[in-house]
Design a protein around this nucleic acid. Structure first.
Lengths: 328, 328
DNA sequence: CTGTTAGCGCCTTCAA
DNA sequence: TTGAAGGCGCTAACAG
């Protein structure tokens, strides 16, 4: 910047003012500075600016697995809103590892991010208390706060699971298997609750022997589904708590002789073209990211100076029915 | 840091030394400092450190669309390798917009990133010349450099397309349609070249009337496929240049009465379960990210001080055949 | 409208 | 082994 100032024959202060658009600069100086900037190919050093001004213009985004389409879409939503406010996204991936989450958050703090959007890994959130304690704006996504009091964006896990299950019941199914992710996870617990509630509301009681929880990937889901379908009194339908488990179940159904109906949480590509009866509780993952970013920015740049209480917002689901293939 | 120093009864300098693991500190001072750090919950300010030391410990990753599974997996690969070297990833999304790409890259420079991995948007790379000119390490992914001379990681677009097409020919197909993304894109051009080469090597000449290029999404691909299949002399197979186009083609084939064979670039979920003949040129997107990150780090932290010439590496493809459904 | 002074938090250099 | 001085690049605050 000194070089630019020298080249333009003004002081560094004037250069600074021109660059940040301060109107109190004569158009003459402005032109001189701009010319010098151009000629020297100068760019402002954001690091130094951050140090002086405070606030890095960065927000941290911590997800469990960026390769999962849900989180990559969430990332897109966060990016979109952050970009509108001139903020950049520093991305971190925990792989569901709590220790790593702590390290990453720690590093984000050291880098002076202006706020953090985080999908909590695992279940305990003790370490995050630190973040909140330091007054760092923090929004949780997908899973609610447990040990701490902070903003969060959730999906209507309960409602979506309940309605999808209810559709199966309405279609006449009475023996509906459940393929679920670990019950210790919030989404797992809520979606199971929805499955159960739909039964109760129809005056039915689910058969516990048709319930398999703690499934983590398509392969284990496929195996569990095959076992269920292989029983003498097999379920006529299966509800799966997420897209990966649904995909495992699709394989199992496909390789069996039965025409088992499927329902699941999360939409996925080609669901329309599988040619089996499929009921999906869908929602917009981008919207989770957008809302999280908006809540975060509300705290980073408060519109009023009253303290904002911790808020919670729930992204709705809508149930889609894909029919079997209609061969024409 | 001053507070910590005061609390520990030493100078700020000693605190700094302890924190960066300088051995020339007495164990007494060290213990004092660590206790004070713990008590005050102090963390080093990376921003200030960067300013003084130079180098931010950040690498920029610029992709065209993070919601595309290819790029989210690439991101995972970059993250993985960067993490091993203590580097964090600043993520930027261009949406295939060249102007936005320029802005984003500019911002990354202003933030003093140590290097950039970039998937070029569009075709012209003029603006990127600036980056290279400033001596910023830069690795391109998926698409090669055109106007500039820099490292890149490519996929074997030509080889994969050629082999997938050759498989169709080997299976007896003689009229093979082509559904392609815009030919101005490197991948589009290379994959078309592979399609053509497979024909020539078999002594065939593709029918230009079966070629549709410039397709951008599943919907346009579906429409193009339907038109092709609706002709009197319809193709018996279709080759698609990427997963989104393949998905459109799957829909078209499904809704037609024909049993058209499909081949395509990029693997995708549930390809195994569609129940139609499907030949896929697959590769590992994570590996593209890992290699790009490694090349970048080679430049950021050179092992020798000889200048490294611009390098190019190609990630291989392997062709997978998914059969039609075997109803048992 | 413009420049000077001072300092953001850290670390390199040099002296003790 | 430790500390003091100075400056990385930038910008508030205060002159002029």
């Amino acid at each position: 910047m000194r070089d630019v100032a020298a080249q333009a024959g003004v002081s560094a202060m004037t250069v600074s003012r021109v660059l940040k658009g301060d109107p109190r600069v004569s158009s003459g100086s402005r032109a001189l500075v701009l010319a010098a900037v151009e000629e020297l190919g100068y760019r402002l050093n954001e690091t130094a600016r951050s140090l002086r001004v405070g606030g890095s213009g960065l927000i941290g985004l911590v997800v469990t697995n960026i390769a999962n389409p849900f989180y990559s879409r969430l990332t897109l939503g966060v990016q979109e809103v952050a970009g509108e406010h001139g903020l950049r996204v520093l991305l971190a991936n925990t792989g569901e590892d709590t220790d790593r989450e702590r390290e990453l958050v720690d590093d984000l703090l050291a880098r002076q991010v202006d706020g953090i959007v985080l999908v909590p890994a695992g279940t305990g959130q003790g370490p995050l208390a630190l973040v909140a304690a330091r007054g760092m704006p923090l929004v949780l996504a997908s899973r609610p706060p447990s040990d701490i009091d902070t903003d969060c964006v959730l999906v209507d896990d309960f409602g979506g699971a309940r309605e999808a299950t209810a559709r199966l019941i309405a279609a006449g199914h009475r023996r509906i298997g459940f393929l679920g992710n670990p019950p210790a996870l919030y989404t797992g617990a809520e979606r199971f609750r929805g499955y159960w509630a739909a039964h109760e509301e129809a005056g039915l009681e689910p058969d516990e022997r048709l319930v398999r929880r703690g499934l983590r990937d398509p392969a284990t889901a496929q195996k569990a589904a095959e076992e269920l379908l292989d029983q003498p009194d097999a379920p006529t339908a299966l509800f799966c708590t997420n897209n990966r488990l649904t995909q495992g179940a699709v394989r199992a159904v496909r390789s069996s002789a039965r025409t088992t109906a499927l329902a699941g949480f999360d939409n996925f590509d080609l669901a329309d073209v599988l040619g089996i009866p499929l009921t999906i509780a869908a929602y917009d993952p981008d919207e989770v990211g957008r809302r999280a970013a908006r809540m975060l920015i509300d705290r980073i740049r408060p519109s009023s100076d009253r303290p904002i209480p911790a808020r919670r917002t729930v992204v709705p689901t809508n149930v889609i029915e894909y029919g079997p293939r209609h061969d024409s």
